[in-house]
């Protein structure tokens, strides 16, 4: 079976399987639950209890903070680590490696399946949050540009984080702790430092892509010195490419004794 056909077949299997996982269902509920909060706040705004435009600002801040600082990195840790680790832990890898599939197909097919599920969940939530928050401003073209910007940032963010964590999981057996330390330790500390140090994080390039039109920039980050958007996209894609390449290389070379 060719690598591409293998990727497609593995993708189909694990996309279906991924949707059934308890972990995925938890993330779906967690990611979509802010929509209820936004509906409540919007109702209060429309009832005159909150100032006009406060829901839109709150929504943008929530997407930036909850999604990009918290939810996406956590999802990426589980996504990245799950691709290989769950096959080894559950001893199911032998079912895949005893088929006429290259190891690269297995890795890429499963990664793209899990990535697609998580991106679809996040993108759906971002769209609903933005549309509900700007319910009385739906004809404004800038709203859709902002939604697109958020979704592009989410796409690249999930891609970069999860590919890096997948690489880490091929290198080390206990990668969860390392990943959490990286996200909530290193990235959190460094982003408040001025100068080039903050460029040593994925978060920096992701935040450089966020459509900061409102106050969420100052809400999140002090001394933020963004990288130009095009460079941020290129750097995130390069990080993803390198991580995927080495994950594939290591997965192919490494022997898993089940």
């Amino acid at each position: 079976m060719s690598i591409f056909k293998g990727i497609v077949e593995i993708f189909k299997v694990f996309f279906r399987l991924g949707l059934k996982k308890t972990r995925t269902r938890f993330f779906i509920i967690f990611s979509l639950s802010p929509i209820l909060l936004i509906i409540l706040i919007k109702t209060l705004e429309m009832g005159g209890l909150l100032s006009r435009g406060s829901t839109a600002e709150f929504s943008a801040n929530m997407i930036s903070f909850l999604f990009f600082n918290f939810l996406i990195p956590i999802m990426a840790i589980f996504l990245g680590s799950g691709v290989i680790k769950e096959e080894v832990d559950d001893k199911t890898l032998c079912y895949l490696t005893s088929r006429p599939l290259s190891k690269m197909s297995i890795l890429m097919g499963k990664f793209s399946a899990y990535f697609s599920i998580f991106f679809l969940v996040i993108a759906t939530s971002i769209c609903f949050l933005s549309l509900i928050a700007n319910f009385n401003n739906l004809t404004n073209i800038h709203l859709y540009i902002e939604i697109l910007g958020f979704n592009l940032a989410a796409f690249l963010s999930i891609l970069a984080y999860s590919s890096v964590f997948m690489l880490v999981s091929t290198l080390f057996n206990r990668m969860i702790l390392f990943s959490f330390l990286y996200v909530f330790g290193w990235e959190n500390i460094v982003q408040y430092l001025p100068g080039t140090t903050q460029k040593l994080t994925i978060a920096h390039y992701v935040k450089s892509l966020l459509p900061f039109g409102t106050s969420q920039g100052s809400f999140l980050i002090t001394q933020f010195e963004p990288t130009p958007k095009l460079w941020a996209v290129i750097i995130l894609l390069v990080i993803t490419g390198i991580s995927l390449f080495f994950s594939g290389y290591l997965f192919n070379k490494k022997e898993y004794v089940l």
Binding site: M1, L17, D90, K91, S98, R99, L258
Partner: peptide
């Protein structure tokens, strides 16, 4: 690896996709 199309393998351990 295409030879594996002609091979069936049943592992010893009780593993499956839940």
């Amino acid at each position: 690896p295409q030879l594996l199309t002609r091979v069936g393998y049943c592992p010893e351990y009780d593993s499956y996709y839940r």
